[in-house]
């Protein structure tokens, strides 16, 4: 890896946890990226907010549960985690139902400025 100044990279996870591999592939990409000394953040929006629900019983479909996968994020020093407020509201999900307690809930206008601050966006 070249010695270039670190960049702000935002991963956007917009899909439900199971049904397609997008959510898991997004998480794998975020975790792999944590080793590269960049300014990483992660945004859950649209159906992506379903990934954050507690007590997902995905063993029934032979998948690892996002309820147990997502809490590793802080161990990888991914601490800038955002959740889109309107996406939660539309799906009647409350903050108490989320598996991560250190997330920042932000509304659509705050998302605009979050996106504008980034050098790169990776959408899944």
């Amino acid at each position: 890896m070249n010695q270039t100044p670190s960049k702000k990279i935002l991963f956007i996870s917009r899909h439900a946890p199971y049904g397609t591999s997008l959510a898991k592939d997004a998480l794998d990409a975020v975790l792999s990226s944590s080793a590269y000394d960049q300014q990483l953040s992660l945004l859950f929006m649209d159906d992506g907010v379903f990934q954050l629900l507690k007590n997902q019983a995905s063993g029934e479909i032979a998948h690892k549960s996002f309820s147990s996968l997502l809490p590793v994020l802080p161990l990888y020093e991914i601490n800038s985690i955002y959740v889109h407020y309107e996406s939660l509201k539309k799906r009647q999900i409350t903050i108490n139902e989320l598996v991560l307690d250190s997330v920042q809930i932000i509304d659509s206008s705050a998302i605009c400025s979050l996106l504008a601050q980034q050098d790169q966006l990776l959408s899944f």
Binding site: K7, Q38, F124
Partner: peptide
């Protein structure tokens, strides 16, 4: 190669464009 090459591409490039997904 590994996913690290995707991060490297994000760092080296001015623009990283995603297709599909």
């Amino acid at each position: 190669s590994g996913l690290g090459q995707l991060v490297d591409a994000a760092v080296i490039s001015d623009r990283l464009i995603t297709f599909g997904g």
